[in-house]
Amino acid sequence: MSQVLTAVSAAGPLAAGWGVHSLWMRRRLSTARRDPLSGLWTRAAFEQRAARALVRGPHAVIVMDLDGFKQLNDTFGHAAGDEAIRTTATSLTTALAGLRGNVTARLGGDEFAAIVPAPDPVALPWLLCALHDAVCEPFSFRGQTLTVGASIGACLTAELPAGSLSLALRRADEAMYTAKRSGGGWRLADGPALTHTTTLGRRTGRPGTTGKEAMA
């Protein structure tokens, strides 16, 4: 009996050590999946979580690209650009905070994405409008007030085959690019078809629903 107690006592610190190590590893993995500048999920982590979310029901997939970001970098320096990225991430997180189950990410550069539950598609235009307004709010940088614009595209997955994340992202991306070509704002993809031409590396958007049309 004493031998058993001795063995258990000896194993206790080892088990505790492995528990701490496992926790440390999980934190390291989670950190590796976060973009260090924005704190949002990276592209790979976003795609994993978004794919699982789509299985649970209808969602809206959102893609957003900042307007005027290069000019801001060129004029005020990369530190100002970094602050714009951080501010955008905060605005995105705050705007979607009330939607349980949302997943937000920085895909790279000045491009962001999100997936949110969308049981009521009628509310989506209002969400996109609020998100656009939040991102375009002025922010402070070293005593100066700066702004960036935003082009946003969204796609409702209820219109697509189940689990079609890549298709939803492509449709949201082409809607976003249509908004960008129109001077910014937001655009909701309309209909299931995709265009087959590209412009500057992006799919050229087909006519969708503009903000004013959807909210009229």
Rank of each mutant, 00 (worst) to 15 (best):
residue 101 G to C: 07
residue 172 A to S: 12
residue 202 R to P: 03
residue 28 R to Y: 15
residue 166 S to V: 06
residue 165 L to K: 00
residue 45 A to P: 12
residue 121 P to H: 02
residue 67 D to Q: 05
residue 21 H to S: 04
residue 125 P to K: 03
residue 144 Q to N: 08
residue 88 T to L: 09
residue 77 G to Y: 04
residue 91 S to Q: 14
residue 78 H to I: 00
residue 119 P to S: 05
residue 26 R to P: 01
residue 166 S to N: 13
residue 179 A to M: 04
residue 86 R to T: 10
residue 158 A to R: 03
residue 215 M to W: 07
residue 150 A to S: 15
residue 20 V to F: 07
residue 133 D to S: 00
residue 183 G to C: 00
residue 89 A to G: 11
residue 59 H to S: 01
residue 170 R to S: 10
residue 161 P to T: 02
residue 131 L to G: 05
residue 2 S to A: 01
residue 55 V to Y: 07
residue 15 A to R: 09
residue 117 P to Q: 04
residue 66 L to G: 12
residue 42 T to P: 12
residue 158 A to H: 06
residue 118 A to H: 04
residue 72 L to I: 14
residue 116 V to Y: 00
residue 163 G to P: 00
residue 107 L to Y: 15
residue 178 T to K: 06
residue 46 F to Q: 05
residue 173 D to V: 07
residue 14 L to G: 05
residue 38 S to E: 11
residue 168 A to H: 06
residue 34 R to A: 14
residue 126 W to N: 15
residue 162 A to Q: 04
residue 205 G to S: 01
residue 63 V to G: 10
residue 163 G to K: 02
residue 11 A to T: 09
residue 163 G to H: 01
residue 190 D to F: 08
residue 106 R to K: 13
residue 194 L to S: 00
residue 167 L to A: 03
residue 13 P to L: 08
residue 80 A to P: 14
residue 110 D to Y: 01
residue 68 G to H: 08
residue 175 A to P: 07
residue 154 A to F: 13
residue 105 A to I: 01
residue 90 T to Y: 03
residue 167 L to Q: 02
residue 116 V to I: 11
residue 60 A to G: 15
residue 153 G to L: 01
residue 96 L to W: 15
residue 62 I to V: 15
residue 34 R to N: 10
residue 93 T to I: 03
residue 152 I to H: 11
residue 34 R to P: 09
residue 98 G to T: 12
residue 188 L to H: 05
residue 119 P to I: 00
residue 36 P to L: 02
residue 174 E to S: 03
residue 87 T to Y: 09
residue 91 S to G: 08
residue 61 V to R: 03
residue 165 L to T: 00
residue 37 L to V: 06
residue 81 G to H: 10
residue 51 A to K: 10
residue 111 E to N: 05
residue 174 E to P: 09
residue 160 L to I: 00
residue 73 N to T: 10
residue 110 D to G: 10
residue 195 T to S: 09
residue 188 L to T: 02
residue 41 W to H: 14
residue 59 H to K: 05
residue 23 L to R: 10
residue 84 A to P: 15
residue 16 A to F: 13
residue 75 T to R: 03
residue 94 T to N: 07
residue 40 L to Y: 13
residue 68 G to C: 03
residue 213 E to V: 12
residue 88 T to P: 08
residue 30 S to N: 12
residue 115 I to L: 04
residue 208 G to R: 02
residue 127 L to K: 12
residue 44 A to Y: 14
residue 107 L to G: 14
residue 45 A to Y: 15
residue 206 R to C: 04
